[in-house]
Amino acid sequence: NKEHILAQKEVLTPIEYEHYVKHLFDIGEITKELYIELSS
């Protein structure tokens, strides 16, 4: 869920976080809207 993803932002580097969010989007775990929101 969104809270879990945002928690990852605390422990990952910005680049790792971007890759993580992109991966979730690629596998269909999150919607495009959520992907855009989380990567901003």
Rank of each mutant, 00 (worst) to 15 (best):
E29D: 10
T13L: 11
L6A: 06
K32A: 12
G28S: 06
T31G: 15
S39N: 15
F25N: 03
L34A: 10
T13N: 05
H4A: 09
L12S: 04
K9I: 08
N1I: 15
H19W: 11
V11H: 11
D26C: 08
L12V: 04
S40F: 14
I30H: 00
Y20R: 01
H4V: 10
E33K: 07
F25A: 06
H23Q: 10
E37K: 06
E29H: 13
E37F: 09
G28V: 01
N1R: 08
T31S: 04
K32V: 15
T31V: 06
H19A: 11
G28L: 04
E16W: 04
L12F: 04
I30S: 01
I15A: 14
E37D: 05
V21N: 01
L38W: 03
Y35N: 01
V11T: 15
H23T: 12
H23K: 12
F25T: 02
G28C: 03
S40D: 14
E18K: 12
S40M: 13
E3W: 10
E37C: 03
S39G: 04
E37Q: 15
I5M: 06
K22D: 11
L12D: 01
K32R: 15
Y20K: 02
L12Y: 08
E16R: 05
H4L: 13
L34F: 08
T31K: 06
I27R: 15
H19Y: 07
E33W: 08
A7T: 08
L6C: 09
T13G: 09
L12A: 01
E10V: 05
Y35P: 00
S39Y: 09
V11D: 08
L34R: 02
T13R: 05
K32W: 13
K32L: 12
I36K: 12
E16K: 07
E16M: 05
D26T: 10
Y20S: 01
K2E: 05
P14Y: 12
V21A: 02
I27H: 15
L12K: 05
F25G: 01
K2V: 14
H19P: 02
V11Y: 14
H23N: 14
K32S: 14
E29Q: 15
E10I: 06
I36Y: 15
L38K: 00
F25C: 03
L34S: 08
Y17M: 03
L6E: 12
H19D: 05
Q8K: 09
K32Q: 11
H23V: 02
S40H: 13
H23L: 08
N1S: 14
I27E: 09
A7Y: 03
Y35A: 04
L24W: 04
D26Y: 13
I27T: 14
L38D: 00
V11A: 15
S40E: 14
Q8N: 11
L34M: 10
E10R: 04
K2R: 07
D26P: 00
H4S: 13
K22R: 14
T13Q: 09
L34V: 15
E3I: 08
H23Y: 15
K22L: 10
L34P: 01
S39D: 07
L34Q: 08
I30Q: 00
N1L: 08
L34G: 06
L12I: 05
I5R: 00
I5D: 01
L6W: 05
T13W: 06
L38Y: 05
D26S: 11
I27N: 15
A7Q: 11
E16I: 04
H19I: 15
D26H: 13
E33M: 08
A7L: 05
N1F: 13
K22F: 12
E33S: 09
Y35R: 01
I36F: 06
Y17K: 00
H19K: 11
I15G: 15
V11S: 07
I36R: 11
Y35D: 00
D26G: 05
L38H: 02
K22P: 00
Y17V: 01
S40V: 02
H19V: 15
E29S: 07
N1M: 11
G28N: 08
Y35S: 02
P14A: 13
I27V: 15
E18S: 09
E33R: 04
K9M: 07
V21R: 00
I27Q: 14
H4E: 03
P14M: 06
L6K: 08
K2C: 03
P14T: 11
E37N: 03
E3R: 02
E37I: 05
L6N: 06
E18V: 10
E3V: 13
L38C: 03
Y17R: 01
I30T: 01
S39Q: 14
N1Q: 11
E37H: 12
L12T: 03
A7E: 15
H19Q: 15
I36L: 12
E18D: 09
T31Q: 05
E3H: 09
I30E: 00
L12M: 15
L34I: 04
E37M: 06
H23D: 11
E3G: 02
Q8T: 09
Q8M: 11
I36T: 11
Y17L: 03
I15N: 13
L12H: 03
E18W: 09
Y20V: 01
E10D: 14
N1H: 09
K32I: 14
E3Q: 13
E18L: 14
V11L: 04
P14Q: 15
Y17N: 01
T31I: 04
K32D: 13
A7S: 06
P14W: 10
Y20P: 00
L24F: 05
L12P: 01
D26R: 06
E10Q: 12
S39P: 00
D26A: 14
E3F: 11
L38N: 01
E33V: 07
K22A: 13
Y35Q: 04
E16P: 02
E18H: 10
